[in-house]
């Protein structure tokens, strides 16, 4: 299924404070495991697009990923969130969203 373009232009991701590299690594491992990817977690570039031309994920992958994220971090991704294009843009933006909303 085609995925369109999800790459947020540079500078639109919002005030990135300090990327939580520990969380990013965790999340990268979760992505690889939950989607049975052939790449390794270390190979996922934090700023690279996850969907389309980057890692090549599609909307079914996004669904699976959101289920895995809900389970692991207690963060629900909903379709009515208009920031979804930014949230799903890259590993970094996704980790940033989780960091903001995770249950502590």
């Amino acid at each position: 299924m085609s995925t369109g373009s999800f790459t947020a232009p540079a500078g639109t991701i919002g005030p990135v404070v300090h990327p939580d590299t520990g969380l990013e690594q965790d999340l990268a491992r979760l992505i690889v495991a939950s989607l049975s990817l052939e790449t390794t977690a270390e190979e996922i570039v934090p700023e690279a697009p996850l969907f389309g031309e980057g890692l090549g994920l599609d909307s079914i992958d996004a669904l699976e990923l959101s289920l895995a994220i809900a389970k692991a971090y207690g963060v629900q991704l909903r379709s009515d969130d208009e920031r979804n294009h930014r949230i799903f843009a890259s590993l970094r933006s996704l980790a940033g969203h989780i960091a903001q909303h995770r249950a502590r």
């Binding site: 299924m1 085609s2 995925t3 369109g4 999800f6 969907f51 994920l57 909307s59 079914i60 996004a62 669904l63 959101s66 991704l77 909903r78 379709s79 009515d80 969130d81 979804n84 294009h85 799903f88």
Partner: peptide, 13 residues
């Protein structure tokens, strides 16, 4: 519409 990353989230909802 297929194509948005959240299309399948919509389906689930």
């Amino acid at each position: 519409a297929l194509g948005a990353p959240d299309a399948m989230l919509r389906v689930r909802e």
